[in-house]
Simulated scan of single mutants.
Amino acid sequence: MDRREFLKSGLLGLALSQAPTLLWRTAAAAPLGEKILVVVQLSGGNDQLNTLIPHRQELYYRLRPRLAVPTREVLDLDGRLGLHPALKPLAPLYEAGRLALIPQVGYPNPSRSHFVSMDIWHTADPERRAHTGWLGRVLDGEQDPLCETHLGTSTPLALTGSQAVAPSVASLEGFELRIQGPLRSLWEEGLSRPRQGEAEAVRQAFLRLKASLAQVGRARGVKNRVGYPSHPFGQALADVARMIAAELPTRVFYVSLGSFDTHADQPNRHEDLLGVLAQGLAAFHQEMRLLGRERDVLVLGFSEFGRRVAENASYGTDHGKAGLMFALGPVRGGILGPEPNLEDLDEGDLKFQTDFRSVYAAALRFLGVDPSAILPGAPAPFPLV
Rank of each mutant, 00 (worst) to 15 (best):
F115M: 04
S111R: 05
D119M: 01
T123A: 01
P194R: 01
D125R: 04
E148F: 03
P156G: 09
R178E: 15
H150K: 10
P145G: 12
A170L: 14
V202I: 15
H122V: 00
E148V: 14
A164F: 13
L139F: 08
W187G: 06
Q204W: 02
T149M: 15
L183Y: 12
S168A: 15
R203I: 02
R137S: 09
E188W: 04
A164W: 11
E127N: 08
E176I: 02
P182E: 14
S111P: 03
G136W: 06
A124N: 02
Y107Q: 02
T132G: 04
E198D: 01
V116W: 10
T149A: 15
S185H: 04
S185N: 03
P156T: 03
G152S: 13
F175A: 10
P167N: 04
N109P: 05
R178G: 05
H122N: 04
H131M: 06
L172K: 13
S168N: 10
A164H: 13
D140A: 06
A158T: 05
G141W: 12
S154K: 12
A199W: 12
A205L: 07
C147L: 15
A201H: 02
P194K: 00
V165N: 07
S171C: 12
L159Y: 10
D125L: 03
L159A: 10
S171A: 14
F206L: 07
S113H: 07
A201V: 10
V169F: 08
R112F: 01
D144R: 13
E176V: 09
L186P: 06
R193I: 13
S117T: 04
A201F: 01
M118G: 02
E127W: 00
T160N: 10
A124Q: 01
A199R: 12
G197Q: 10
Q143L: 14
R112L: 01
G190F: 11
G133P: 12
E200C: 05
S185R: 08
E189R: 13
A158Q: 05
L135D: 08
R203E: 07
R203C: 07
S192A: 15
R195E: 13
G197E: 12
G197D: 11
S168I: 00
R193T: 09
P145H: 10
S168E: 05
F115V: 05
L146F: 14
I179T: 09
E173V: 12
R208Y: 08
R128N: 05
Q143I: 11
L177R: 03
L186I: 10
P156I: 00
L157V: 03
G174A: 12
G197A: 08
D140H: 08
L146H: 06
V116S: 09
R208S: 15
L139G: 11
A130S: 15
E189P: 05
E148I: 14
Q204V: 13
I120W: 00
S154P: 04
H150A: 11
A130V: 02
A170H: 11
M118Q: 13
W134C: 01
S162Y: 11
R203V: 04
R129N: 08
D119F: 02
E188N: 08
A199H: 08
W134P: 00
G174Y: 14
W121H: 03
G174P: 14
